[in-house]
Computed example of a mutant assay.
Amino acid sequence: MNSSHSDLQIAGDILEVQHLLQPAREHPATVAEFAGLARSIAADRSQWAHLVQYDAVSRWYHRLRTVPQALGSARAGEAPIGYEVWLLSWVPGQGSGAHDHGASSGILTVLDGELTEHTERGVRSLAAGSQRVFAPGYAHDVVNDSLEPAVSLHVYYPGLTDMPMHPAQSPPATQDAVPA
């Protein structure tokens, strides 16, 4: 097997291949480890629940963790990967607008409630516990279409420095979410 392939290139959707999902380590370096970091934070409500606020006027967010360059995350000859962890709340009707994350990859994990993700490929309902993994340039619009508030966790690696907005688009038919 070619060692230059990432977990995601080898497995396709990493969340579909449960044996590749690994527990978080102190300094994640692979897609699976970043997904594990998000799952471990999601599972420990004491890390985030007391911070959540809801704002009907503007979207609320809180940077939960910043690791500029995660020492020990690099393989031989590679630069360490920095990352950020964000906590967001969504009141009914709030959305992100269509955007991508520049050069950052990411993991979106729904902690409470339900969100809807719109992409050029379709619409996906994301219930609590759902995760989405995305690569640089992945464009989506995330919306709380439900009647209850929602909370999500976002891990960006490297840390988020750019979030270009895109024109709204009408996606094709709905796809069911795959629970994490």
Rank of each mutant, 00 (worst) to 15 (best):
I81D: 01
G36Q: 06
M1V: 13
Y54M: 05
D44R: 15
P149T: 06
R132L: 11
Q94H: 02
V110Y: 00
E16M: 10
A32S: 15
Y54N: 03
G129L: 02
A103C: 08
Y156K: 03
T30E: 06
S3F: 14
H99S: 07
A168L: 14
T119E: 08
Y61W: 12
R63I: 10
G36Y: 04
H50A: 15
F134G: 02
L37K: 04
G72S: 06
P80F: 06
R124V: 15
E33N: 06
A43T: 06
Y61V: 00
A24E: 12
H62S: 09
G77V: 04
G129V: 00
F134Y: 10
S73V: 03
V155S: 01
M163R: 09
A168S: 14
R39H: 12
M165N: 09
A56E: 15
Y61P: 01
G97N: 08
R59G: 09
P23W: 10
R39A: 14
M1A: 14
S73D: 08
W90Q: 03
D100F: 05
T66G: 12
A177D: 13
V110P: 01
A76L: 14
D7F: 10
L64R: 07
G102A: 07
S105L: 06
H5P: 00
H101R: 03
H118W: 10
A76Y: 12
L64E: 05
D145H: 12
E26D: 15
P158A: 04
Q175D: 10
V143G: 01
A128N: 01
D145Y: 05
D141V: 03
A139P: 10
S89T: 09
S125G: 13
R65Q: 15
L153I: 08
R124Q: 11
V151I: 12
Q53K: 15
V142L: 13
E84V: 04
L160V: 11
Q53M: 10
D141Y: 03
H99L: 13
L111T: 00
A49M: 11
D44L: 10
L15M: 12
L64C: 07
Y138C: 07
T174F: 12
V110N: 00
Y156V: 08
Y54G: 00
V123F: 05
G72E: 04
S3E: 15
G137K: 08
P171C: 04
P172F: 13
G122Y: 10
T174K: 14
P80G: 05
H27E: 14
Y54H: 11
W86K: 06
T116E: 14
L37A: 06
A43P: 07
T109V: 09
M165W: 03
L87Y: 05
L88Q: 05
Y156G: 03
Q18C: 10
S6V: 07
S73K: 01
H140C: 03
G36I: 07
H5N: 12
L21F: 06
S152Y: 02
G137V: 09
D145L: 14
L87Q: 03
E114C: 09
L71H: 14
T109N: 04
E84L: 02
E148V: 12
H50S: 15
P80K: 04
V91E: 09
R65H: 11
T109W: 04
V155K: 01
D44I: 09
I10S: 11
G122Q: 11
P23R: 12
A139R: 06
L20A: 10
Q169A: 13
